[in-house]
Design a binder for these strands. Sequence first.
DNA 1: GTCTATACAAGGATAGAC
DNA 2: GTCTATCCTTGTATAGAC
Lengths: 181, 181
Amino acid sequence: MDRGYAATRLGDIADYADLQAGSLYYYFDSKEELVEEVLRYGVQFTHAHVRTAVEQLPEDATAGDRLRAAVDAHLESMLELGDLAPAHVRTFNQIPPEMQDRLRTARRAFGKFWAELVEGAIDAGEVRSDLDPYIIRLFIVNSIERVAEWHLRQKRSAEELAQIMRTMIFEGAGIGAGWSR
Amino acid sequence: MDRGYAATRLGDIADYADLQAGSLYYYFDSKEELVEEVLRYGVQFTHAHVRTAVEQLPEDATAGDRLRAAVDAHLESMLELGDLAPAHVRTFNQIPPEMQDRLRTARRAFGKFWAELVEGAIDAGEVRSDLDPYIIRLFIVNSIERVAEWHLRQKRSAEELAQIMRTMIFEGAGIGAGWSR
DNA sequence: GTCTATACAAGGATAGAC
DNA sequence: GTCTATCCTTGTATAGAC
């Protein structure tokens, strides 16, 4: 679905599955249903992966540890999902509005989880409190989601990318103070 | 073009321009040509805006000042372009490959300008030198480009958004050291 | 310049054979 | 379950009137 929702023909999908276009209707009632299933899988997979990673931390993990773990796990999901990750990120605003509504519940649940992580880290004094938590969350999640889109010239390992993202997200690009002036 | 390249019908565009679909062919030879023109305008407008902002800085501006100015100007462009900004960002990977090739020259020129700003700031010791400059650039530009997509609940002024973006990009979300460990 | 009417192509969906 | 053939809708593009 790299090329967008409407541009992706059932024939393409069928090719990918080594089937003929018509055969897809044995499994799905419509193209919409098929796409919805794929997108829903993407959110739920990622949500589950991130949540598990956070919950598996030891009892004494700080709010910062939890947030860091979430960044790593979310990034891992993006990389593991392969083509599916960018598909989901890119495609959501292209699908029919009713479908967006149906998927929104799943997306909101994941967003809420993220929001709690960010707010927890702010309350613990580990994330800056001078910006809107909502914006901080958007910024972080957006950064992670787009990584899957970077067709990097040098292939980098998941660990390497995680390290880079953590640095940029939490420490920023600048050196020393006064950058935001 | 919120809904993607293929999903955007000539009829929609015609409606927007208070015309009938057929009338568009007086101005353009094809849908492709029309879209290409719109996208090209977007890159060039932004490139020009950012370049001008940077070049208008006083002689004694540091590499950091230049980079900061670029962030502000790029963000301003995104906001000024209105619907056109997300259209460009979202649509590029959906358009036919030959069209991507034709637009790539304009995009590369802008990318090169950005790369020089980032590298200048690294050389001047104002941006961290422990990460790949290419990645730093992707991260920064991506962050700016997506802001136009945030349908923020509270409307924020351009200055306010610029302040937020500068803080997140250069200082990061974290407090204190040790975040990237 | 902009309209209406229409030709033409493409793709989603259905039917029925195997 | 998967195929092939076909229907039907939609959307790009063209023609020609005004």
